[in-house]
Design a protein around this nucleic acid. Structure first.
Length: 136
DNA sequence: GCCAACGTTGGC
DNA sequence: GCCAACGTTGGC
């Protein structure tokens, strides 16, 4: 089974890719959305995720790797939601902006474009390859 | 700052 | 169990 691909969003004001690089790894918690939680639960160690900055930047800035599969979110009293752990892989030579992605026909079906509020979404291998090519 | 999308809550 | 009201997210 090949590793799956994902996209995670973060407001850089709250937690940026630079923060992840500084920390070495982080607990990806605070997701309070069922669809996003399902994706978190589907993540495997070794899967890679595009790291997207929402609001500020609106661009994919780096790649992260899943280092721990889903466990109950420590900050969620209801026990419904989960967290994973991420580590930085590398920053992209050239960030890929939302405008770039919208302008690319190959990416028009992307989950994050079709449903912009989803904070964790799957990325197909084809989409992944297109984005990495765009990133230089 | 506004508004659209969409998930969640609560009254019935 | 339905659905209106409300809250939150995120692009513009």
């Amino acid at each position: 089974m090949t590793a799956a691909h994902w996209l995670v969003k973060s407001e850089p004001n709250a937690y940026s890719f630079a923060d992840l690089q500084r920390d070495g790894s982080t607990v990806w918690d605070g997701v309070r959305n069922n669809a996003a939680a399902l994706h978190l639960k589907a993540m495997k160690v070794g899967d890679e995720a595009l790291f997207y900055h929402s609001q500020e930047g609106k661009e994919i800035v780096g790649i992260a790797r899943i280092t721990r599969t889903a466990f109950p979110d420590p900050g969620d009293p209801s026990g419904r939601f989960v967290a994973v752990e991420l580590a930085p892989v590398k920053s992209l030579p050239k960030p890929v902006t939302l405008a770039d992605m919208k302008a690319a026909p190959a990416l028009s079906g992307m989950a994050m474009i079709r449903q912009s509020r989803l904070s964790v979404s799957p990325v197909t291998k084809a989409e992944w390859d297109v984005i990495l090519t765009m990133a230089g």
